[in-house]
């Protein structure tokens, strides 16, 4: 049973990944569609980042995580190096949790 779950997940996930890549060759996309694909990817990644920053399961994630993300975003906005953005976001959240913020 377990092996069936793993195989189904592995095959299904790979099918999603590879079909986009291979379809791109077969489809003769008009210019407007080709211009919209990066917009679509950006919208998906933004939605992913927003839900990961604010929610845990179906509920609010608590204040520590979004605060840390906000610190990272402000640093990124100020053109801080990427490593600093990531470390500051994690550090802020870790510190807030240490202080008892959920």
């Amino acid at each position: 049973m377990l092996i069936a779950v793993i195989v189904a997940l592995a095959v299904g996930t790979y099918a999603f990944r590879v079909s986009g890549v291979l379809l791109r060759d077969r489809l003769d996309l008009p210019t407007w569609a080709r211009q919209l694909l990066p917009v679509a990817a950006a919208a998906l990644l933004a939605a992913l980042a927003a839900t990961a920053a604010l929610t845990e399961g179906a509920a609010f994630a608590g204040w520590a995580r979004p605060t840390g993300v906000l610190v990272g975003v402000v640093l990124a906005w100020r053109r801080a190096p990427f490593v600093l953005v990531v470390v500051a976001a994690a550090g802020t959240t870790a510190l807030l949790r240490l202080l008892g913020v959920p």
Binding site: V39, A43, L45, A46, A49, V69, G72, V85, T93
Partner: peptide
């Protein structure tokens, strides 16, 4: 758990300068 969203947003920021991308990304989020 804060490192991943912060990293993703940092990578996205330059593309958000385009108004259409920004609207689509903020609306979608």
């Amino acid at each position: 758990d804060a490192a991943f969203p912060a990293g993703l947003i940092a990578l996205l920021l330059p593309t958000l300068r385009d108004p259409d991308t920004r609207r689509a990304a903020l609306g979608g989020a």
